[in-house]
Design a protein around this nucleic acid. Sequence first.
RNA 1: GCGGAAGUAGCUCAUUUGGUAGAGCGAUAGCCUUCCAAGCUAUAGGUGGCCGGUUCGAGCCCGGUCUUCCGCUCCA
Length: 488
Amino acid sequence: MQNDKKAPETQWGLNEIISHCKEYGFIFPSSEIYDGLSAVYDYGQMGSQLKKNLRDAWWKSMTQLNDNIVGIDAAIFMHPTTWKASGHIDSFSDPMIDNKDSNKRYRVDHLIENFAETLKEQEAKELLDEMDRLLQADDLKSLYDLIVKYNIKCAVSKTSNWTEIRQFNLMFDTKLGSVSEEADKIYLRPETAQGIFANFLNVQKTGRLKIPFGIAQTGKAFRNEIVARQFIFRMREFEQMEMQFFIRPGSQMKWYEHWKAERKKWLEEIGIPSNKLRYHNHVKLAHYADAAVDIEFEFPFGWKELEGIHSRTDFDLKQHQQYSKKKIQYFDNDLNEEGKPIGNYIPYVVETSIGLDRLFLTVISMSYEEEKWLKEDGSEDSRVVLKIPAKLAPMKVAILPLLKKDGLPEIAKKIFDDCKPHFHCFYEEKDAIGKRYRRMDAIGTPFCITVDHQTKEDNTVTIRFRDDMKQERIKIDELKGVILKALQ
RNA sequence: GCGGAAGUAGCUCAUUUGGUAGAGCGAUAGCCUUCCAAGCUAUAGGUGGCCGGUUCGAGCCCGGUCUUCCGCUCCA
């Protein structure tokens, strides 16, 4: 189809990956039997396992391999004031207006500001003051009147044929309480970070944690994106893996550089090719950040953000301190140059934030291959294979009797039962062996164990490697050890 | 949200001026096979996205609607 911006060196693109994900139980469009739900996807039997493996790998690297990082699991619902404090209510709800002739959409403030630049200084100031007042008051009707009064035109169509002003907010809201009239509006969190900030004191005190330390969390977040496209890259419901690292003020650049390097290193360690990763510095910074960088991956549709590292200063904790009227401070017992404790301060924060779904898409993108080659008799052979790093693969091992007779299935089932507790195994005796290998390739199973007649003589089986299709013969007794070693 | 394109079995598609839908692959159950898909047999699976209109009769014509894709708008 038309969407296929395939990387130049390959014959496949996003569409092939989407099809493959659906065909083999990785990802389905949500509510497909009801014609689907835009920009929402379900993870299937293979996908949910791969996703879990990625989440587990991240969680382990953060909370187990760093002795100064702990994990939490905060609720999706938070007190509405949280989002006042974080700035999400004010900064990310923009009134929009469309021009009916050009179909161009504008943010109302941008439209008026651009127009103001054409006015004399005094007039412009009056207009902008009025705009600010109305924006503050959420008075969309009067804002519309203002646009009409000044006869502001669309730059493209040169007309002032405007739609009504509509409020766009990226946050989903719902009602807390079963009686809707008495209920309060609450939001589905648009990021997990605020659950960490709101629990800063709880975790720091109960964990007796000393700065610098980090709090990690994985979980769902929700954003009402205007346009959601590119498969699971941008979804309305998605999963974040975030870590907020709390540090002494003034040390933010050191830690920013530290995590910038650490995170790219980790991505490479789990198997992402380094030539598919790059940094992209933010020029325009968000209201809370004093430095920000993306780690981008080369997706089938181009270089896009996979993970962000942000120096968030003390913005968030300071905001929560102000809105909650609770002192959010840390007493630092380390001594300064004068030999006295450094004392109280609001910690600074360096954040690492990666989208689990984007990481999933990254792994699928880099793993997917369509291979073709000539067989010995000259005919063409091919396969689709997911070369997922073994330790991330959803299915680790397939146990296959070469034939469905002569006692081979019985031996294979025995091996299957022995291996089951140690890693995810799949047993299958149907169809020719080559066909079963192909099916395992398609879901990315790194190892196939085949039981043949020789097994009955010397207790050996063949182990077949997914990536090069080579085989080795090994003793059944050594099987578990060999595979466990390969999965490390 | 606007504009354009598309929507027939799990997948890829066919049914050439409207006459109650087929194939390949896949799946399932067998058979045959001692190592890399496409050997044999059988079976399942579609109210042709949905609703309505024209017609004796519509997958094919018309209208609406939903969904997907492409472009634009937005993106901490």
